[in-house]
Simulated scan of single mutants.
Amino acid sequence: MIHPGIALLRLLHAAVPVTTLARLGEWLGSALYPVSPTRRHIGLTNLRLCFPELTEAERRRLLKAHFRALGRATLLETVSWWGERAEVEGLTRLEGLDNLLPYLGKPLIWLAPHFVGLNIGGVRVSTEYAPVVSLYAHIKNPEVDRLMLHARTRFGGSELYSRQDGIKPVIRAIRKGLPFYYLPDMDFGRKDAVFVPFFGVPAATITGLSRLAKATGAVVVPCITRWQDGGYVARFYPPWQDFPSADVVADTRRMNAFIEDRIREMPEQYFWLHKRFKTRPDEKRKGGLYED
């Protein structure tokens, strides 16, 4: 039996125009803000650490805007789940193709940080350049998990691997010429991570981008998805020169600095509800920086 929430989302997708769906998502995000104390605490803690120059009132306004952006993206993901190809393509415009096209069919990594349109952009680029390869973490709700996997593989038979599968299947896929849609900007703990600044705060950051580029000879072309002018834009940035270097820590710091620059352009669209600073250099501080 289909979960009532999934059934409602499918009904909304079928019955409501995209513009209305976007507004409904923003309303949903606004409604969730006051009733989500734990997520609100995480978000405000992240914003205090990353934007100490803002007042508390400014950070609260920014977090409210983030909830609206997240709600909008959540409802518009239904287009990725059930929309026809033309609908998926119409929701998200591609930009910066001159930065991408010379590297198609060669080892290639798309650096795709956690902006709220991440999944929408990933499905969109798969309509053009599948098969692609990506890693994923299972979602607790099995129906949502199946929908997410379906969306990411429905165009062109892309390859998805669980993080538990290890990195070897991804390396093989990159070497075959499949673009790797890579999301390395969360706190995954100490394994394969170094502490480098994220908005000036030491953050456990995995070194996978540098190590994968070295192991495969892949070019790194960032792909950032943002909400702009009533739709999404998935923009490919210029390929990184002199990457990887001989210094994996410097490479990882470079990645964080690039992500910071993109966040400053649209701070409400970055995913602030993740405990980015949970893992600390001092192993005794188990709660990270999120303790009251």
Rank of each mutant, 00 (worst) to 15 (best):
E87G: 08
A86P: 14
N119P: 13
S126G: 12
S134N: 02
E128H: 05
Y129H: 13
Y103E: 07
I109R: 09
I109H: 06
E89A: 03
G96T: 05
K106F: 01
E95K: 11
N141V: 01
R93D: 08
L149Y: 05
E143S: 05
G96E: 02
E84F: 07
W110D: 06
P113W: 03
L97D: 07
R85W: 02
I120V: 15
E87Y: 10
G117N: 06
D145N: 10
A86L: 09
V123E: 13
L100F: 02
L118Q: 13
T153K: 14
I120P: 12
Y136A: 09
L100M: 03
W82P: 06
G90V: 08
A151D: 12
S134T: 08
G122V: 10
V116C: 10
L97R: 14
G105L: 06
W82E: 04
S134Y: 00
T127G: 04
P142E: 03
A112L: 13
S134G: 06
I139Y: 12
G96I: 09
V144G: 00
I120L: 15
L104I: 04
G117T: 07
A86C: 09
Y103P: 05
W82V: 11
L111M: 09
S126E: 15
S126L: 11
G90D: 12
D145H: 08
Y136E: 06
A151S: 13
G121H: 05
E128F: 01
R146N: 12
I139R: 15
G90F: 06
E128W: 00
T127C: 12
L91E: 02
R93L: 05
Y103D: 03
R152Q: 07
A151E: 14
K106A: 05
I120G: 07
A112W: 00
T92C: 15
D98Y: 03
A112R: 04
L91Y: 06
W110A: 09
Y103W: 11
A112Q: 12
R146H: 05
P113L: 08
G121N: 06
D98E: 13
E128N: 00
L111Q: 04
W81P: 00
W110G: 11
A86Y: 05
V132C: 09
F115T: 00
G90H: 10
A130K: 03
L111C: 01
G122T: 14
A112V: 15
L111W: 01
W81D: 00
L149K: 15
E84I: 03
G83P: 13
R124N: 11
E89H: 00
G122A: 14
G90S: 14
G117V: 05
Y129T: 02
R85S: 05
W82M: 10
N119I: 12
L118A: 04
K106R: 15
R85G: 02
L104D: 08
P142K: 09
R152G: 07
T127Q: 05
G96C: 10
L104E: 03
S134D: 01
F155T: 01
Y136C: 11
I120R: 14
E95G: 01
V132W: 00
P102D: 06
I139W: 11
P107N: 07
G121F: 02
W82N: 09
V116K: 07
Y136F: 15
G121E: 02
